[in-house]
């Protein structure tokens, strides 16, 4: 599967995010280009907010987020073509009634011809082992299959980076492993928030968030042991 020619470079310049009086993220300065980046942190520490700032679903109240030289506030659409998002609950991101048409939805705004769209949908169904479900209504899929479909919906857009917000939280152990394998098999860059620390062991970089700040930013081994101490 061909992806964008170069991997994404993400830059946070003095990024802050406030909601009313509440300061959710404080002055973040970051540079991210590693293939696999993990983020851990306690509930409410601002992880989901952080992820949404990356692809312009939220825009910072102060500072700027740059993705490959595109500022998310001004170029949200181009940024989202480069970066796909997989949410925690697949039910909220499957938007059309059947598997096949839901996958095609992500390409409906593109200039691609119907044949190319069909081809891409075929490819991704094949790759994630969902081909036999293609005409099924989405609501009859199991939780694990729904999450695979959500990932397929991200992959079909052929992004350079995929963001995951707790992709395995709602899944049983086997499905969580399955999704983890899929994540490791991606040629895309991956940024994932998770509470499943074993998932992060093979990652290139792990950040620990606490109370709206990145309090550790290191190799998985070092960051995770810091996190375990923080939580104890």
């Amino acid at each position: 599967m061909n992806v964008m020619p170069f991997k994404t470079i993400i830059e946070f310049n003095a990024v802050g995010y406030q909601s009313g009086e509440h300061e959710i993220l404080k002055e973040l300065n970051l540079f991210m280009s590693e293939p696999r980046i993990g983020i851990v942190g306690s509930n409410g520490s601002g992880k989901s907010t952080f992820l949404r700032l990356i692809n312009g679903l939220l825009v910072p109240t102060t500072g700027e987020v740059w993705v490959d030289g595109l500022e998310t506030r001004r170029c949200a659409k181009q940024v989202r073509d480069r970066i796909s998002f997989v949410f925690q609950n697949p039910d909220n991101q499957i938007v059309l009634p059947t598997v096949e048409e839901d996958l095609a939805f992500g390409l409906s705004r593109s200039d691609l011809s119907a044949e190319i769209i069909a081809k891409r949908v075929d490819d991704v169904l094949e790759r994630l082992d969902l081909a036999h479900k293609r005409h099924e209504p989405c609501h009859v899929l199991s939780g694990g299959q729904k999450q695979l479909l959500a990932i397929a919906g991200a992959l079909v857009r052929r992004p350079a980076t995929i963001i995951f917000d707790e992709p395995t939280t709602l899944l049983d152990l086997r499905n969580a492993r399955r999704i983890a394998d899929v994540i490791y098999s991606l040629e895309q860059n991956v940024i994932t928030v998770t509470h499943d620390l074993t998932l992060l062991e093979g990652f290139d970089r792990v950040m620990v968030m606490n109370d709206g700040e990145v309090v550790a930013d290191d190799t998985p081994k070092a960051a995770l042991s810091y996190y375990r101490r923080l939580m104890s």
Partner: peptide, 13 residues
């Protein structure tokens, strides 16, 4: 969340 997901997938038709 659904509308964020739609936006993340390229927006409304």
């Amino acid at each position: 969340q659904v509308s964020q997901a739609i936006d993340a997938r390229g927006g409304l038709p």
